[in-house]
Design a protein around this nucleic acid. Sequence first.
DNA 1: TCTGCGATAATA
DNA 2: ATTATCGCAGAC
Length: 214
Amino acid sequence: MPPAVVARGFYARDPRAVAPDLLGKLLVHDSPDGVRRSGRIVEVEAYCGSADPGSHAYRGETARNRTMFGPPGHLYVYFTYGMHWCANVVTGDPGESGEGLAVLVRALAPVDGIPSMQAARPAARRVRDLCNGPGKLCQALGLDRSFDGADLVTANQGVWLADDGTPPPATPFQTTRIGLSAGAEHPWRWCVPGDPHVSGPARLRGAPTPVPGP
DNA sequence: TCTGCGATAATA
DNA sequence: ATTATCGCAGAC
């Protein structure tokens, strides 16, 4: 089944509904030089705008977060910790558009262009370390500030979201979000259970619990 | 495999 | 001052 662009309507919902549906989709970057880098989404977090103290949008629109307040189906890319880029998918009900709702893509299982990803991420010694974190996947796919605001449906900047028929997991692994000081109590992180490309230690990956000894 | 810590600069 | 993180060192 050939990959299809994910339709615009997919994004026009509450981020807590979009987030688990994103698991299994492909995040694709086609560079101008013809190289395709892509990975299957295995970990996401929902951010709920003005209602969510963990969101960049909590205190309203600024120059940095402007894309989040725009239409669903665009990429919000921000810079953090002095050296990392992170990528979000802007979402939102039609009635909520402009509320600053988004889903952070936290990890991918690499699919296409692995040699190109390795060239972009010399620190990653194993393929499983290429995209197992929000900053890592941006470095691997070559996503930075210049992709902030990119339209994922028209793919006008070479970045798009594809559906190759892989369904989201029937029972995703759900936990609280990572790295927050405010709003950390909400269980708005979803993962493909046990996938080795999910970020963090085993307990945060939904690793199968070891069977008790006899 | 897991935990702790320093790097590094835009943002508010 | 804070930060939606990463990579390395060191312990087990």
